[in-house]
Design a protein around this nucleic acid. Structure first.
Length: 263
DNA sequence: ATGGTCGTCTTACGA
């Protein structure tokens, strides 16, 4: 079974690419982030025509997450916990999590808050969001140590210096701060392994390149999109890759798809 | 060719 994650940066502007990529890559489950649309705007017909089911959580032009599956889509949840942190004025549950059971695997599509700057309320929100996810996902494994769980998406954290094209440029910025890295590592330490990195060793291996300043051809990227797997699922991972070819051509997302194959 | 931001509720803001 093949599971993938991809921040598409607007599903409406990227639907032709998504359809072509699904067809070309024999994908069973695709987790999407940044759909940037409401339910009624989601281009579901194109996906149904390919034989996929889908679930989407989108409130407006911001955020938005979806799961697309051809191996079933059951027990859908729009938040990872009842107390997933809220944000905004008035504070509300943002469209940043969607989970479903697909082919026996509990798959979560996450769009972790960006943080913006280290002194922004959005940064505090980001840390709380990750800390609460750590608590919730730890409990899932406590409840069932054999659980098949994939937590995938845009984590907006570069866990190691190798995941950043030039650390000096990111001094004092989000994505690389110690609290963010500790929050990410806590989830790994709880038992959720990065199952892509062993198959795609760095340095210079990224999943995101800014649209500006020719970042992609200059190889100035970040590794911030991850597939974290519970122990029982991690044991089934045969291979993985980052499809950086998808960052090329006319009208790409600024993120590349990340893919695993499990037995 | 991969080539000097992009996407949205677009002249402002988030990423």
């Amino acid at each position: 079974m093949r599971i993938a994650t991809w921040n598409v940066n607007s599903i409406r502007s990227r639907i032709d690419r998504v359809v072509a990529w699904l067809e070309a890559n024999d994908v069973d489950v695709l987790a999407i982030q940044e759909t940037k649309c409401r339910e009624d705007q989601f281009p579901g017909l194109e996906l149904s025509a390919l034989g996929y089911e889908y679930v989407h959580f989108g409130l407006n032009q911001w955020n938005g997450v979806a799961l697309i599956s051809r191996v079933g889509l059951e027990d859908v949840a729009m938040s990872y916990a009842d107390d997933q942190p809220h944000f905004g004025d008035p504070a509300h549950l943002e469209a940043r999590s969607i989970g479903a059971t697909c082919g026996g695997v509990r798959v979560w599509s996450f769009y972790v808050p960006n943080g913006r700057t280290l002194d922004d309320p959005h940064y505090t929100y980001k840390l709380a969001w990750l800390e609460r996810l750590h608590a919730a996902s730890s409990q899932w494994l406590a409840d069932d140590p054999q659980a098949q769980i994939a937590m995938v998406g845009d984590w907006n954290v570069a866990p190691t210096d190798e995941d950043v094209w030039d650390m000096s440029v990111f001094e004092g910025h989000t994505h690389v701060s110690v609290p963010e890295r500790e929050a990410f590592q806590a989830i790994v330490d709880a038992g959720y392994a990065d199952v892509v990195r062993p198959h795609t060793p760095g340095p210079g291996v990224y999943t995101y390149w800014d649209y500006q300043q020719l970042a992609f051809p200059k190889k100035r990227g970040l590794r911030i999109d991850f597939i974290l797997a519970s122990p029982a699922l991690a044991a089934r991972v045969d291979s993985a890759f980052i499809d950086r070819e998808e960052r090329k051509g006319k009208g790409p997302s600024d993120h590349a798809p990340v893919v695993i194959d499990i037995s």
